[in-house]
């Protein structure tokens, strides 16, 4: 204590050094402890493993029909679109869209009749209606979300209502003419 009195802002003392290093070690330790505490919140190995890619045969889906399936716990719509629906999707002026995307960007070349999108409204995650017969398809021949009134067109693009984005297209590829692998 004796030497601490006359060191007014000049030379750092040995005590200052000890304080700083102790504080630094403590901060690193607390920071390291936060990692497992936060990291455990993330999807665990089992959940990740269950999210492996899946194969789907599109042949049973008739024209104008849509099916629903789950991948990674998320609902996916696969729709075999009619000629009218495809034409409507192509006819839209991209500049008028809230989330501008062409129909080509949302389908695979040569397989334009198949539309694969996540079945979760981009507003707050409800399931839009329009996949099963008899359900309202909204004003644009696509989907209608009953929760807050978002309308999606036959390309799954947002056209009206509070949702900010188009229904996202999940990662998938054609493995054969009527077979896809999602994931």
């Amino acid at each position: 204590m004796a030497h601490a009195t006359d060191t007014t802002g000049t030379e750092p003392t040995r005590r200052d050094f000890l304080m700083l290093t102790t504080g630094a070690f403590g901060a690193v330790g607390v920071g390291a402890l936060v990692v497992p505490l936060v990291s455990q919140l993330a999807p665990d190995a089992q959940v990740v493993a269950a999210g492996a890619p899946i194969d789907l045969d599109l042949a049973p889906i008739a024209e104008g029909q849509a099916i629903k399936l789950f991948w990674r716990g998320k609902l996916i719509f696969v729709r075999n679109r009619t000629k009218k629906e495809i034409d409507e999707a192509l006819a839209v002026d991209i500049a008028t869209l809230r989330d501008p995307q062409t129909d080509q960007q949302r389908t695979k070349a040569g397989h334009e009749k198949y539309l694969v999108v996540y079945g979760s409204c981009t507003h707050l995650g409800c399931v839009p209606l329009g996949s099963s017969p008899g359900e309202p398809k909204g004003e644009f021949d696509g989907w209608f979300c009953p929760c807050h009134g978002s309308h999606y067109d036959s390309s799954g693009r947002i056209r009206k209502g509070p949702a900010p984005l188009n229904l996202p297209v999940p990662p998938y590829a054609f493995t054969a003419d009527t077979k896809i692998k999602i994931g």
């Binding site: 936060v38 919140l41 993330a42 999807p43 665990d44 959940v47 999210g51 990674r72 716990g73 998320k74 979760s120 507003h123 707050l124 995650g125 409800c126 929760c147």
Partner: peptide, 25 residues
Amino acid sequence: VITNLFSALPVIGETIVTFLWGGYS
């Protein structure tokens, strides 16, 4: 619906939602 409210946050929104869920839904 309520957990998806957090996805409205820019940049980190989706990550926060995944951490809230502990999965993809």
